[in-house]
Design a protein around this nucleic acid. Structure first.
Lengths: 287, 287
DNA sequence: CAACATATGTGCGATAATGCACAAATGGAT
DNA sequence: ATCCATTTGTGCATTATCGCACATATGTTG
């Protein structure tokens, strides 16, 4: 007797129709019908009378349904216990992410994570090298380039979109008077920098900063226009997004960890949390 | 969460190894491994530590195992209740079979059936027409020709083998002195009769009977050789089987009933019983 | 009374699960 | 110390299951 057949029957007994049970189980109504038929065959009993638009339980069906309901309660207990086992586990999880992502994307949400998982301590550090995982300095790494180490479990969890931002005052100037803020030369290969250079059209870079925060602060001070991730630029009330002649770049966000670490319930909770906030701030589709 | 994964885990928890659980479930050890792995993934927990020659439950595994044990008990209760529902059902089941099959194949075993299912009353009648089902005179029909009514559920449950039988005294006579016992002319189309006629080679039919019993009694009385089903001829100590120039015929045994009748637990019990005794007396292979 | 939404039933192709065969490792027996 | 029986793990071919599309029927609504 296949217990999954019992599960389908339990849901059918509760909902009264193959279609409703199918929706709850997220399978096809045909599957529910076949599964319950298989159960009837295995038990040698008729559990349901099939009518054109609903099913009725037979007397035997009601008897089995009351037994299988206790199995359903136990299964739900197992699932709750599994969730509890994860949440209750005291653990420390160390996250490494590019500084801007760490400070502006992750850090603002750690309070809500802590509220839901008080026993898990997060340690967040800003870094861009993959070595953070290798050196044992982090359990999870968020990165803008796909990690290539074959021993890592890697998943693409979002897309970072960019825009060009300045104060409203700067934005009101004629476009040929716009000034720009860039990274220094060692980051000339970075897609955002490449894009910024393509926009210059003879207009000057008046400030160079080695990190995004400096660029953002300079833009807020009216120095000029800077390329910022949308989740930063759109959230800053002092800045507006400028129109641009070409589409801004988009960069995938990757999450990497080691397989044995992934077995840890605490780490999985953190991965789920990062997946959710990245999905909100950096959706895979559209900007 | 797939309840069948839970079932595999329940057995693994009880037996301590993938191989032992596989034997109990009658599946491959690889299947048990995959199923338990799927459960671990669904729950986000590690339930077992896999060692080279055994598995150990983790602390979480022990917790889940104690919960799933109650599901196992409930499932066993459901199965026992299903068997009880079948066995306890008071019912009358009417069987129609060719007379020889009814009297010599089925009747000798009804005592054992009754012992196992005291609440089911069997009514056995000898008939060869399919109309017995149509007229509502029988619930189950055993037949030597495949029933063709599309509304019937039909299954081939055995093969009746035949032989030529006579007393040892008759058998000791020179073959050219052998005499034969046949059906009367109206059964000339029946395969056994066709075969018998093919064996005559100028030797006489000295007795004709309209039924098998008369033929068997005449053969026992030394009148000559008769074609009998093996399960009759081999079981008669007064008769021996004669060598023949050609292979005897074999006829399929078919069991037929109506679909709604088949849902009856009592009828299924009887069908199982008939299937077993026919399989023993008239196996599908070899003679 | 007609139309429509939703139910169950079924055949078939695609996908997932299983069994099989093999490899590697281990613990007990000799 | 060696050998053997039995374990777990894995790739691949085969088989079973599922989803999909369609048919039919029905109950509710306009």
């Amino acid at each position: 007797m296949d217990w999954q057949d019992l599960r389908h029957f339990a849901i059918l007994a509760r909902t009264g129709s193959l279609s409703a049970a199918a929706r709850e189980l997220d399978v096809d109504h045909a599957t529910v019908g076949r599964r319950v038929g298989a159960l009837e065959h295995a038990l040698g009993l008729r559990l349901v009378d099939r009518l054109p638009r609903r099913v009725l339980l037979t007397e035997e069906g009601r008897a089995v349904a009351s037994l299988v309901a206790s199995m359903e309660q136990t299964a739900q207990l197992i699932e709750r216990r599994a969730r509890g086992a994860g949440a209750a586990a005291a653990a420390t999880v160390r996250i490494s992410a590019p500084p801007a992502v760490a400070a502006r994307l992750v850090a603002p949400h750690v309070a809500e994570f802590h509220r839901d998982h008080p026993a898990i301590t997060l340690i967040l550090s800003g870094a861009t090298e993959m070595a953070a995982l290798d050196r044992g300095e982090a359990d999870l790494a968020l990165r803008l380039s796909r990690p290539t180490d074959p021993d890592l479990i890697v998943s693409r969890i979002g897309v970072m979109h960019f825009g060009l931002y300045a104060t409203a005052e700067q934005a009101a100037l004629p476009a040929q008077h716009w000034r720009f803020i860039a990274y220094d030369k060692k980051l000339d290969h970075v897609p955002q920098q490449v894009w910024l250079k393509s926009l210059l059209a003879g207009r000057p870079v008046v400030f160079q900063a080695s990190d995004l925060f400096g660029q953002q602060e300079a833009a807020r001070a009216g120095m000029g226009a800077a390329v910022l991730p949308r989740f930063i630029g759109d959230a800053d009330p002092a800045l507006v997004r400028l129109p641009t002649a070409s589409e801004p770049p988009a960069r995938d966000l990757w999450l990497a960890t080691y397989p044995d670490l992934k077995r840890s319930p605490a780490l999985r909770r953190v991965m789920d949390f990062l997946g959710r906030i990245v999905a909100r701030a950096c959706p895979k589709r559209g900007g």
